[in-house]
Amino acid sequence: MHIARNWRVKKQRYSLHGEICHHCGAKVFPPRDICPECAKPAYDPLQLSGQGEVYSHTTVYDAPAGFQHQAPYALALVRLEEGPMLTAQLTDVDPKEVHIGMPVEMVTRKLSVEGDEGLIQYGYKFRPRMMARAA
């Protein structure tokens, strides 16, 4: 992915910046210009907590270019506490131990590497929630 394209998404990718619609109250990630719930065009910024749970998951064996050094890896649909769902890798966990409903939290990690001279992309992954481990 090109440099400018990465730079444009840095707030959402590094710190889960979302939006809240001041018309209907919908919480949204990633930011859009139009609320997906009420289709009205107004938004206020919302910092998401990064806490969520696994809605579903799989293991990627045939990884796309840039991800091959990580394969096999766990991929999940994560439902954030605030409501929005996103797609992310799970980290710091054996893919066999992942289950639906597992509490997870966001961490910033290396996402992909574009060869020896290309970009290294960083962004969000999710790991088992530390509090849940301690409990």
Binding site: R5, P30, P64, F67, Y73, L86, T87, Q89, L111, S112
Partner: peptide, 10 residues
């Protein structure tokens, strides 16, 4: 591409 594929989805 920005919110599924960049995160490693196929």
């Amino acid at each position: 591409q920005e919110y599924e594929v960049a995160e490693g989805a196929t």
